[in-house]
Design a protein around this nucleic acid. Sequence first.
DNA 1: GCCTTCAGGATCGTATCCAATCTGCGCCAG
DNA 2: CTGGCGCAGATTGGATACGATCCTGAAGGC
Lengths: 230, 230
Amino acid sequence: MSEHGKSTATDAVYDLLCRAIIEQSLKPGMRLPEDTVGEQFGVSRTIVRHALVRLESEGLVVSKRNRGAFVAEPTLEEARQIFEVRRCLEAEVTRLLVQRMPRTGFDALEAHVRREHGVKGKDGPVSIRLAGEFHVLMAELSGNDVLAKYVTQVVRRCSLIMAMFANSHSSDCAVDEHSQIIAAIRAGDTARAVALMEHHLGAVADRAKFDATPDTVEAILARYGRELAQ
Amino acid sequence: MSEHGKSTATDAVYDLLCRAIIEQSLKPGMRLPEDTVGEQFGVSRTIVRHALVRLESEGLVVSKRNRGAFVAEPTLEEARQIFEVRRCLEAEVTRLLVQRMPRTGFDALEAHVRREHGVKGKDGPVSIRLAGEFHVLMAELSGNDVLAKYVTQVVRRCSLIMAMFANSHSSDCAVDEHSQIIAAIRAGDTARAVALMEHHLGAVADRAKFDATPDTVEAILARYGRELAQ
DNA sequence: GCCTTCAGGATCGTATCCAATCTGCGCCAG
DNA sequence: CTGGCGCAGATTGGATACGATCCTGAAGGC
């Protein structure tokens, strides 16, 4: 690698793997051999290793000792926990935005909603990514970088969870709910804004869990079968 | 190296660096050259680098390109943000504990408070560590591992912040406030428990900021002077 | 005298190399 | 025919080697 000093190669590999996982190109449980990834991106295993360490620390991949790295397969319990944290964090974001939304904040949010509308009918990956980015954008507008970083991580893991459990991504984040949340924030109605956000996230979580209820034998075997297929 | 297969060497280095930073053996702004750390622990740069990546992703160190890694020096703004997130997360922990405190939870918490009392008058490092561990213990009792992990990270960064700004660590976490929080949780009084927790954290944060107000020239120079001394 | 510039050293970023470990398959005993 | 054992291949874990980049500091020109 090493063509332009823009950024380190590790970051590039990290970003690509991140996107690939979120967009479901890399499915949960899939193996990530270091040299395969490395030669695919034209970098050495060292780079891939570092990227995988970062991804693991964020919970997107798990690595078993001397076995290698795999795309994380959150259990339902983990999913529940992650959604619990997400609801907590995003409620805080909402509260903060009612207090102190930056000048151009509403414009940015509404522009994003329009983009979401634009790809509403289209395929899942872009839609799911945009839906996540809306929440990340909100977090960034809160002015709290730490909070935004955590929201980013949690949203990513939620995308992974949706990839595992939900089957109808097209309706993941109802864009209308996004608009309603914006409206409540603009109106300065904290209680309503937070309630809308929690309902919004609750709806997403319930949808995921609902689709997962088939925890019957065939569902489990199907998942293991998918892992078998590498 | 490589004598006991207990765990990976990376974890060991990570833990040691983590503790060293929290206990202020490694002071904010201090350089962490990979070679130095490596030969100090008897491991190669590879290991150190992985540990540093993890530490950086948790905000305990920052690394500048081709410059190396440094113990993080949170600004007051960052400190404010971190405390904001911490208040949010720990309020959620408190709420969860009122709902579902595990069987032996109160015993564990009270045992910890007793240990805190035991070292109350003693030196800072142990006291500050125990104070942090109390909050981590609460988070772990919440049964939400993701939440507990984030609380752990935030508490660590707060310890670092206290190390920078506060000068009287002995009274960081008033042990009595810990007891009061436990009592409120036991009584099932969510509102009071959350209020106590937020007040508790607010007090800690204010104390830190109050001590930091001398952002005059000499304070800044003192900090740089400390960095100069490596 | 001050600023610019360039050489030196130090440190990081990346690649390559060796050792340890796990997996998979075949072989043999029961 | 079944189940355990052992060897070979593959893959990771860790260490070392080399090139790139950046800071330091001193020498030279304005």
